[in-house]
Every structure is written in C-alpha cells, then in structure tokens.
C-alpha cells in the first residue's frame, strides 16, 4: 500500500505492454496464417511432383495434369466475368443513379441476398433449374450459330456445360462487383455531377463524363475481385458441370474442361496416398492464381485511392 504512487505507473505500463503485445501478436498471426497456407500447401503438394501416371489420371507428369484444369478454371471465370461485369455495372447504376431514392436501398438489400445464398444451393439451382432450360437454348445455338467455334455443338441435352457453369459463377460474382461499384459510384463528387447536368448533359452523358472516369480504377478492381471469387468457387461448379477434362473452346457440348476447385471437391473424399498430394498441389496452383488476381485487384484499387486523395 505504501508503494502506490510508484506502483501504479508500473502496472499501467505492464498492462499497456501486455495489451499491445496481444494486439501485435494477433496482427502477426494473420501474416503467419497466410504464410502458413502457402507453406503447408507446398509441404503437402511437393510430393506430387514425382507422382506417376497412375495417380495422375493417365497423364505423364503433374504439369500435363494441371494444365487442362487451369485452362478450365480460367475459361469458366472469364465467361462469368464477361456476363457479370456489364450486368453489375448496370445494377450498380440503378442503385446509385437510376432508381428513386426510396427504392435504391431495398434493391441493394435484395442484391446482397444473392451474396448470402450458399454455393451448394446455387449448385442445386444450376442442376434443376438452369441446366435443363439452358440446354434447350444450346440446341438452338448449335443449330443457328453452329458456325462459331464456341457453339459448334453437338449441344448437351442436360445443359451441364462450361457455359452453364459460367452463368452460375456470374450470378455468384454479381453481388460482389455490384456492391463495390455502387459504393464507388455513389462517392462521385456531387459538384462534378451537377456541373455536368448544368451544362445540359443528359443523365447518361453525366454518368459517362463524371461517374465512370472517377470510378475507373474502382470498377477494374471490383471486376478483379469478382474474378477472384469466380476462380475459387467450388461446389456450384462441381455440381453443375459435366467435366471430362479436355481443352476446348466449344462452350455448349457435353465434353467440357474441368476446373481446379471442382476437381479437388470431386476427387478428394475418395483420394488416398499420392493422389491427395496431387490434389493439394493443384490447390496450391489455384491459391497462387487467385492470390495474383486479388493482389492486382487491390493494387489497382489502392492506386486509385492515392489519385483521388490529391
């Protein structure tokens, strides 16, 4: 008790340093976790480099095994983004500029609902609803646009093609891109917009001249992040796609490329021995691809912010 005046600063300091230590440890923990993801996947994936064709589905080495999967992953994601990006930008404009103020918030919530639907439910929807209906459309495409290599056919009757997978992925990427875009669009300085309108610009001209230039980097990074989601999405693709593992640009036939994530989900539950390592190796490849895409997306977004901050 006698030492109170001296003691108190000491405990305070100790409490402070302990708390700061905890906080710092938590932050470092995140770095460790991220590094851990890379390290453990590498540890368990490396044995796959010496895998023999028995574990590689008849392919001679791991590169030949992974390459068609990379192709399928990129193709599905690219298709998804081609569909999702224009749609999401339109949607974001509806929320930020077109819809009456009273409606725009509920619309935003509804779009967020799309993001809340679990991927396995999208899978069910893709098989039961989307696939059979798109299957009919594919028949029409093959008949009428069959001269294009994408629609060469023969069309898949069940509709479980890479294009269907792309549509499902597009629906899943849509809310992410929309959310970021609408955030950026609504941040466009009101003065710029009013200035454009005052000069006699139509609403579309105002958007083209003020909103888009202001939000360009944000839009690009939003699309990149949506792409990250589409690249890594697993269950919906695993359920919807009828995969054979070929490399083709025919989007509507029953012979389709597979994606890395779907291939892991389908193969893992019954894999054993070196086969597990092969799948983990392909997971490592997927991790690297998504890491690079997300990295670029964030980098572009970050640069945009610096510019805006002038």
């Amino acid at each position: 008790m006698t030492a109170v005046p001296l003691d108190r600063p000491a405990t305070t300091r100790r409490g402070d340093s302990v708390f700061k230590g905890l906080a710092t440890a938590a932050a470092v923990m995140i770095l460790v976790a991220l590094a851990g993801v890379g390290i453990f996947l590498t540890l368990e994936g490396v044995p796959a480099l010496s895998a023999e064709s028995g574990a590689l589905g008849g392919k001679d080495n791991i590169v030949l095994y992974v390459w068609p999967l990379i192709y399928g992953t990129l193709l599905a994601a690219a298709l998804a983004i081609l569909m999702a990006a224009p749609l999401s930008i339109g949607l974001a404009l509806v929320i930020s500029h077109y819809a009456p103020r009273r409606l725009s918030k509920p619309i935003g919530y509804v779009i967020d609902l799309l993001a809340a639907v679990p991927s396995v439910v999208y899978g069910l929807w893709g098989i039961e609803f989307l696939g059979p209906r798109l299957g009919q459309a594919y028949g029409w495409l093959a008949e009428n646009l069959g001269f294009l290599p994408f629609f060469e056919g023969p069309a898949s009757g069940s509709g479980r093609t890479i294009l269907t997978a792309g549509v499902v992925l597009a629906v899943m990427a849509l809310p992410i891109i929309t959310a970021i875009c609408r955030e950026i669009f609504s941040q466009t300085p009101v003065l710029h917009q009013e200035a454009a309108l005052a000069l006699g610009a139509t609403r579309w001209e105002m958007i083209r001249l003020t909103v888009f230039p202001y939000g360009r980097s944000g839009m690009i990074s939003a699309v990149m992040l949506g792409m990250g989601r589409a690249l890594g999405e697993t269950m919906a693709v695993a359920m919807v796609l009828s995969a054979t593992g070929v490399v083709t640009i025919n989007l509507i036939s029953s012979v389709n490329p597979s994606t890395i994530a779907a291939n892991i989900a389908l193969g893992f539950p019954e894999a054993s021995g070196i086969k597990v390592n092969v799948l983990i190796f392909s997971g490592l490849v997927l991790f690297l691809i998504t890491f690079v895409v997300n990295f670029l997306g964030r980098l572009i977004a970050g640069r945009g912010q610096v510019k805006e901050g002038r």
Partner: peptide, 23 residues
C-alpha cells in the same frame, strides 16, 4: 478414372443416370 477425352462426364452414379436420362 476415365482414360480418354471423349464423351460426357457424369459425377457419381446419379450424375451418369441423370445425364443419360436428360440427354
């Protein structure tokens, strides 16, 4: 594992049956 790159793939027995049924 299916050795050639031809034909439609179905996931699991139910996948094959539904692909044959719907096709």
């Amino acid at each position: 594992e299916w050795p050639i790159e031809a034909g439609e793939g179905g996931n699991g027995t139910s996948g094959v049956v539904s692909a044959v049924t719907n096709g």
